[in-house]
Amino acid sequence: MIDWDLAVRVGSRLAGDGPTVSRAEAAGVVDELRRGAEQSTPLVREFTGLVAEERTAPVLVVDRPGWIQANADGFATVIAPIVAKLQEKKGPPSPMTEAIGSRVTGAELGLMLGFLGNKVLGQFDPFHDAAGAAGRLLLVAPNIVHAERELSVDVHDFRLWVCLHEETHRVQFTAVPWMRDHLQSLMAEIVGSLETEPGRMLSEGLSRIGDLVSGKTDGSLIDLVSSPEQKKVIDQITGVMSLLEGHADVVMDGVGPEVIPTVAEIRAKFTQRRKGVGTLDRMLRRLLGLDQKMAQYRDGAIFVRKVVDVVGMDGFNAVFAEPANLPGKDEIHDPAAWVRRVHG
């Protein structure tokens, strides 16, 4: 149903190669990012109290096409149950439908990956499972170099700052092994309630895209085609992701002053950068739900800081004790409610 090779080709072409660097500079960036990820492990452990075995997930420093290929592989795994469900109801597509449809969807996915492929600085992929690894950490070298030049910040401080954020995600999933299974179970719930009429989904989604782009309605494309049952599960996922992203932001800023002298300057400039530039950029961010992603960083960080202020870091770490202790979307905006529920 999706021409994955075409998606990777289209995405890589759209994303481009990134900033021009010499071979020696590129090698230096790769080496520094690898060392930054390794240096971050004990720093995150000391600050958070979460203990994750070192080197349980490989660190890959990739270029833009490498990130796009990794995410295409990840998407193929995630949507496999959806494809199976569609084919179970509709049967396998005709050769003509498969030939044309797969290229159309491949090109569409490639456009999305291409847009994101020149923006993402790093990513922890918890669902990658190869040779017993507990996920993998991807650091996108050309995007990091582009960002540090664009922001005019100390390059060594910025690289370590990025590594701290992404390493926190690695620790979250490797120190809390049930987190991956919990997210997978939530995704399975969405698949289980999936509307298997693609034409209906498309028509309903297209009818409301105008309102979404114009700002008359909130959300993203995913919200437009989600059923009420799916939205309940999406709210749970939103709560988890807000927690994880906010926690990582708190760690990178909390650890930062000890090892990153210019952390305050970096945070101020990077927060401004997250808002996006240009009308087209803002529209695409809204359609893809990136505005919601930015809200997750902000709301999650506020939640973590307020909870830590009340019950300390050890008390906060109760969120990682079991799935029932994870905050819901409403509790992310009401930290006191979470404290009452979990700590009495």
Rank of each mutant, 00 (worst) to 15 (best):
S207K: 03
T20P: 03
S152W: 13
K275I: 10
S203Y: 13
P19H: 07
A27P: 14
A324L: 03
N118W: 13
S242F: 09
L164A: 09
S203R: 12
T20N: 08
V304R: 01
S227H: 10
E98K: 11
Q184I: 13
A76F: 08
H156E: 15
W4P: 06
P93D: 07
M187C: 03
G289D: 00
A26F: 08
S22K: 14
T56A: 11
D314N: 15
G312D: 08
M112L: 09
V61L: 11
E38P: 01
A133Y: 01
V44N: 01
V342A: 12
E148P: 09
V342W: 10
Q39E: 15
F173I: 11
G289R: 01
F316T: 05
M201F: 03
A188Q: 14
L224K: 01
L186I: 13
I2S: 10
D309M: 09
M112K: 10
K275C: 02
P95L: 07
L244N: 00
D125F: 07
Q123A: 08
A52R: 02
V61E: 10
G219K: 00
L121Q: 12
L111I: 13
V8M: 09
P198W: 11
G239L: 10
L138N: 05
F124G: 07
K216W: 04
S227I: 07
A264P: 00
G312T: 09
A131K: 15
L243G: 06
L86W: 11
D253L: 14
Q292H: 08
V140E: 06
D125T: 06
G114P: 07
V250L: 01
G114L: 03
M252E: 15
K85V: 00
I82T: 12
E229S: 15
A324Y: 06
I266E: 01
L206S: 05
P177S: 00
L151Q: 11
